[in-house]
Design a binder for these strands. Structure first.
Lengths: 202, 202
DNA sequence: ACAATGGAAACACTTTTCGTTTCTGTTGTT
DNA sequence: AACAACAGAAACGAAAAGTGTTTCCATTGT
């Protein structure tokens, strides 16, 4: 069932939802754009909410895979944070105020499911990063890993509530600051020295 | 009738339409946001289409006034074009693919009226600029003013059909290129010298 | 010839929003 | 105190748009 047509449905639907807005694009519009009938489309998705969920889920999977690859490489914990920084930032930019508004109002279950998925991924990723940094002597041993990870996620969520438009580059600034503060708060002297050197090179 | 409340209705409605999308924001939402009842709102606008029209018209008036001010100052025709360049560009950025899509599909009369209004303003502005440039020896005397003005408008319209997202900075590039070519195509040697000097200072 | 598949479009139903109206409370005036 | 005017909240009836289902038809493969 994970065939080329299914991939195309998700990718192309996602593109036109993002371009024109979820509620402005009807299932008829999607079929017209894709050149398939509704009967065919409904062989792949249960309903519009299901389509939206599957699109966001697939999108999230790309993000999750990127994070997982960074972790699997077993590199330096600070390098990983820096690599993840801009990737996560641009992922968040897709969630524009209008999209969030629509998801919350008309597809609340999809919204809950997706954001819980994201929350879980981030929590796991940060926890793993914290543990690796502690083990490598870059982060302080006395950190309450669970608490720091939760605080990180909380900060992400608060940034997300700010409802900036996707063209607003304040996202990068705020986001980068949050990452910067997070790292500075948890590093050892060795880790700080490494981090400062790395920042100077950018 | 042009009172503070009316101004506030237009400004605030325009803001949330722009943030959340025209069709995602109901008249009820607008009233809730403004803290007024629908009965009050309908004292100021006939219906939703009328509200949208009035918002876009007011927005256009700001733009038109800016252009008029530049013309009234009687300055150098090339300087005026350069002053107008980025103003027009950011004005166009408000017309995102989703907004255009909605206007065309659900409010076609509003769309036609607004774009005809814009077209007329641009045509008049460019025509006035061409005549001033010719009079001042910056533009060539052999120009067919009417034809050049129409070509300029045509180019603007074609850029507008490209459906770029508002975060895409290709708009500036394409737009700037179109302005550049327009000016280079019509200047006298004196005008070109002046223009090149001006461009070097930027 | 028949079966399977998929597109186009009709269909019945649902949902949302629209614009209108009613009810109520508040304020100002006499 | 009584009355008029005004505005907000919400109910209301109607319309529009969209949803998901089904039918009809054409095409392709066996």
């Amino acid at each position: 069932m994970k065939d080329e047509r299914y991939e195309r449905i998700l990718n192309e639907s996602g593109r036109i939802f993002q371009t024109y807005g979820i509620r402005n694009v009807s299932m008829d519009d999607i079929c017209t754009t894709l050149g398939i009938s509704k009967k065919t489309l409904y062989q792949y998705v249960n309903n519009k909410a299901d389509l939206i969920f599957k699109i966001l889920e697939a999108h999230h999977e790309v993000y999750r895979q990127f994070i997982q690859d960074q972790l699997d490489q077993g590199g330096n914990a600070i390098d990983i944070m820096l690599a993840v920084d801009s990737f996560v930032c641009s992922e968040m930019k897709n969630y524009t105020p209008d999209n969030i508004f629509v998801l919350k109002k008309y597809y609340p279950e999809v919204y809950q499911a997706i954001f819980e998925m994201k929350r879980t991924s981030i929590l796991e990723g940060i926890t793993a990063n914290l543990n690796a940094g502690i083990r490598d002597g870059l982060y302080r041993k006395d950190l309450d890993v669970d608490l720091v990870a939760r605080m990180f996620v909380k900060n992400l969520e608060e940034i997300h509530q700010l409802e900036m438009s996707s063209s607003d580059n304040s996202y990068e600034k705020i986001f980068g600051t949050m990452y910067d503060h997070h790292i500075r708060a948890i590093v050892t002297p060795d880790g700080l020295e490494y981090y400062e050197k790395k920042k100077q090179r950018q």
